[in-house]
Structures are given as structure tokens and as C-alpha cells.
């Protein structure tokens, strides 16, 4: 397959020593194997995620994503924009839609952008990394690179909210999207078919501001993975990953549970199955270590 190139929007949490820097490491490893080239949008800014509304009004928020898209148009005119963070993808895609529907808003946004010497045409596709994998690479090709099938592992595919709604992945349903399960099977592991909490909400940003209420949601997500016999959870979203991984001890303390469920990214799974080292797969970024993957990677 020929090299595929994209204009890449990494997002804040993927930066060096930020909360999903491990996601970025495994994405880089996976992309190298699959001959995907990610060209970082020069000087990108934060998209303000889904929580920006309370600080900024509508137009300032739209301007944030518009600036990224305008920079991308300038630097990588022929490449789709690709994001790995669900919130980044959603905020950017939503901005694009809103501005396409409303010529006045687009004009106002461009007036604001002009202050930064930029102009937005707003014609690019905005895509999530999993769309690239599924649509541009395809399961078959994804499977061809597997050197160490993850046999014997049972994995709960936790899709969460924002990679799934409101846009979702083409051809998938909102209530039961199958793409993560298919990826799990592509790397030789077994997917939990009836994982009830597949698309439930982890609390998102409210895990910070409403910890008790959010942790009650997270508890159910992890419990259901255990009930389905999962060895670990896999997710496409940095917010989901962080929320379901790092609060397990607090949940244990509060509810008397004994959770110790590793939560990894799809890119980590693929990297391990592609025969990469634990470091390349960013297994050292697990707060709850994924010992079974470490073993496979160490073989």
C-alpha cells in the first residue's frame, strides 16, 4: 500500500508528558507500521473540548477550531484533518458543520481569523484516526501486519460517547457499534460481545468537577467488563481511557470493589500485535499495568 498522508491535530492531552502522551506514542508506532504519515498542523491550539462553553461564547469557541482548520488548509492543502482525541475530533467537526450551515457565522469567524492573518475555506474532511484505519486501511490490511496474535485475551471494547455520537463511524449504529470488537478480533483476541456499557458515558470532563457522580458511572463500566469476563478494556478516546483507568483505586476505596482492570488504547493493542516492544506500544504509560500485553510484547 502506498503511503497515506494526513494533516494531524494531536490535541493538548497528547503532548509530551501530558495525560495521554502514551496514546501518541502508540499511535506513532502503529502509523509507522501501516505507512501512515501524520503531519502535525503547525502551531495548532486547543479546541476547548466540550467544556469550553462556560468560559467562551459561541464565536470564540468556533474560532478556536477554525484557526486549526485554517492552519491545516494552509500547510497541508490536500490532506484530510485527522484527530486522535474524540473531543478534538468532535469540536472540530462540529465547528465545520456549524460554519457550513451558517454563512453569517462563517463570515464572522473569518473576521476574527483575519486578526491572526488566517482565512478559512472550510472544505476539508475532519476525521478520527479510527476512521482512517477502518476506511482507508481496512480490517484486512490491519490484520496482515499481525505478527503476534493476542490469542487467549478477552477484551471489552469500550467505545464511549464522543467517538460514537453525534457523528459516529459510518455504517455503525449508535447503540451497538461493532468496529472496536472487529479490531479486537483482527488482532486475534476475543471481544466481549455483550458488553452492556459499551456506549455509556464515563462522565467526561465532569469526572473533575463532579467526581462522586462520575465515579458511580465509571464503576458500572468497569463492573460490566468484569461480568463479561474481560481481561482488559480497550478504548479509542483519551478522556474515556483516563477516567476508566485512574480512578479505580478511589472507586475501590469507596465501594469496596477490587478493580484492577487495565484500560488500553486500540493503538496499543495493534502495536503489541504488530510485534512492537512494550515501550513502542507505550505499555509503560499504563497506571494499571497490562501484564498480559507486556508478556506478549516481551516474547
Amino acid at each position: 500500500m502506498a503511503k497515506k498522508s494526513y494533516s494531524f491535530y494531536p490535541g493538548c492531552s497528547s503532548q509530551k508528558a501530558a495525560s495521554s502522551s502514551n496514546y501518541q506514542v502508540s499511535v506513532d508506532t502503529m502509523c509507522k507500521e501501516l505507512d501512515i504519515e501524520l503531519n502535525e498542523i503547525p502551531d495548532w491550539n486547543c479546541c476547548s473540548a466540550s467544556i469550553g462553553y462556560a468560559g467562551g461564547g459561541e464565536l470564540p469557541r468556533l474560532a478556536l477550531s477554525a484557526r486549526n482548520m485554517a492552519l491545516s488548509e494552509e500547510a497541508h492543502p490536500d490532506q484530510d484533518i485527522v484527530a486522535t482525541c474524540a473531543a478534538c475530533w468532535l469540536a472540530t467537526k462540529e465547528t465545520q458543520e456549524r460554519l457550513n450551515d451558517n454563512a453569517d457565522l462563517l463570515a464572522e469567524t473569518n473576521t476574527a481569523l483575519a486578526e491572526a492573518g488566517l482565512k478559512l475555506k472550510n472544505e476539508k474532511k475532519v476525521r478520527h484516526m479510527v476512521e482512517v484505519l477502518i476506511e482507508d486501511i481496512g480490517y484486512e490490511e490491519l490484520g496482515k501486519h499481525v505478527k503476534k496474535p493476542l490469542e487467549g485475551l478477552k477484551i471489552a471494547g469500550y467505545v464511549g460517547c464522543q467517538t460514537n455520537r453525534p457523528f459516529g463511524i459510518a455504517g455503525e449504529s449508535f447503540e451497538n457499534p461493532k468496529y472496536l470488537d472487529k479490531m479486537i478480533e483482527t488482532v486475534g483476541a476475543e471481544a466481549c460481545d455483550n458488553y452492556e456499557k459499551k456506549v455509556s458515558c464515563c462522565g467526561g470532563a465532569l469526572a473533575f468537577s463532579e467526581p462522586e457522580k462520575s465515579q458511580a458511572l465509571i464503576k458500572e463500566i468497569i463492573e460490566s467488563a468484569y461480568d463479561n469476563g474481560a481481561d482488559m478494556i480497550v478504548t479509542p478516546c483519551p478522556v474515556c481511557q483516563m477516567n476508566t483507568e485512574v480512578y479505580q483505586e478511589q472507586i475501590n476505596a469507596k465501594y469496596g470493589t477490587k478493580f484492577k482492570m487495565p484500560v488500553v488504547y486500540y493503538s496499543t493493542l495493534l502495536s503489541v500485535a504488530y510485534g512492537k516492544s512494550a515501550k513502542e506500544a507505550a505499555l509503560d504509560g499504563q497506571v494499571i499495568r497490562a501484564k498480559q500485553l507486556e508478556e506478549i510484547a516481551g516474547k
Partner: peptide, 12 residues
Amino acid sequence: GFHAMLKKAQEI
């Protein structure tokens, strides 16, 4: 540029 852009958006 970033701050000028946000300021403008706020003004509008």
C-alpha cells in the same frame, strides 16, 4: 495572533 483572534470573536 491567537489572542487578537479571540478578542475579535468576543467583540463580535
